[in-house]
Write a protein that binds this DNA or RNA. Sequence first.
DNA 1: CGCGCTGTTGAAACTTGTCAAAGTTTGTGG
DNA 2: CCACAAACTTTGACAAGTTTCAACAGCGCG
Lengths: 244, 244
Amino acid sequence: MPPQGATAKVTLEVIKTACSNCNLQELCLPYGLNQMELAKLDELVSTRKRLKRGEHLYRSGQPFDSIYAIRSGFFKTDVLIEDGRDQVTGFQMTGELLGLDGISSEIHTCNAVALEDSEVCTIPFALLEDLSREIHTLQKHFHKVMSREIVRDHGVMMLLGTMRAEERLAAFLLNLSQRFTARGYSPAEFNLRMTRDEIGSYLGLKLETVSRAFSRFQEEGLIAVQQKHIRILNTPGLKKLMTH
Amino acid sequence: MPPQGATAKVTLEVIKTACSNCNLQELCLPYGLNQMELAKLDELVSTRKRLKRGEHLYRSGQPFDSIYAIRSGFFKTDVLIEDGRDQVTGFQMTGELLGLDGISSEIHTCNAVALEDSEVCTIPFALLEDLSREIHTLQKHFHKVMSREIVRDHGVMMLLGTMRAEERLAAFLLNLSQRFTARGYSPAEFNLRMTRDEIGSYLGLKLETVSRAFSRFQEEGLIAVQQKHIRILNTPGLKKLMTH
DNA sequence: CGCGCTGTTGAAACTTGTCAAAGTTTGTGG
DNA sequence: CCACAAACTTTGACAAGTTTCAACAGCGCG
């Protein structure tokens, strides 16, 4: 893990960016905008940051002023409480937004960490609010994105509150598969970017339990695991397991 | 439980309302607005609905077009999945907003049920978006409310993912106490509006576990329980238990 | 006034966590 | 490019916590 304040020099490189020639439009904030509107959004989303694996995009407690769109890479967000407990609250991939939690108090309430070398577009929030007062479509879409985050969280609450270990892991794998698919990758074969411990933290399980569940899925021929590499062999089987 | 479509006649009575003479302003949507802005909000939030205990404000799957501000009463929201599992995702009280989950897909994704006779203000969402493009303060506040919901959900995920039964119940009681306090009620004495089963569902526990935890708290002198009536006798004790 | 819903309590079963040890991979520096 | 250390993963045995099943008590509504 890099030292706290010393990251900006080399790795947080700033690059010119433009939504209008980004291939993530339909996954990201520009969804539904026309050419003219897109040009205005371009002015706003003018900088990119690169992060190396392990670097923090932001930390809990830091002042909030921007949200971030992931252009490439993979992140986790986690919350830490006083007594040392912590939990991964989400894994974010290409096209997803980071930082929405900071809007309420104008202070970030979680940490966002790159799980692989990544690139994000910085979206100054005050400017986004200005622009979304102008562009109805943008406003509407942004509200939907926030609401989708709430719905997603309810899904996680459901998972944590009602599912058993193997059901949780099955749900997790199917969710990843579906999100990879939406991004044009194989639904059945991918590399996990996170450790067993991080998966466990997200799913409310200990890493040993996650490991055992992986082994069990493999024994049953549902998946093939080789460390971080996962191949899903029997999607319906996983679904049935999840539904129980 | 009332029959599905037959509730509108008697109980969903519609009443004229006005934010400008509502005593919940600082807890609710009008927060931070000036007189002129408040007048515009009044035009928008023009109807109230009364609900009897047990009635649904909306159901999962219904088309979304309004959010609701609770004027008086107490609600729960819950999600139901195919295999019959369900979970309470939240308990809402005076001044809190219901329906934010429906924005993303324009379909409600959970049920909202009154746990006591209640009254809500209906806020047509399209009009709220229109007005929040006009009134910067309203826009900002609404974004904060949505973001606060996300932060709250992260707190619940933390609770479900890392806490043991008694810690969860302690956290739950302290949270209720704090919210009652914010509304001018006693921090130490209140009536639960929900059953042990509903508490359990929210906390990811079985009702028996909730009941046992209540008994244990009572034995240890932390609280006095008489059915739904709770007196908190030792707040620091509960806090310590929660922090562990 | 009694029936049903809600809550309490006990004992046994089950799931997951804890602790421990050993194997594997990754990354770094020589 | 290899060697070594650190980080991560797997597996087993046992402990702890929670659920399940069951019986019963109490309150409240009709």
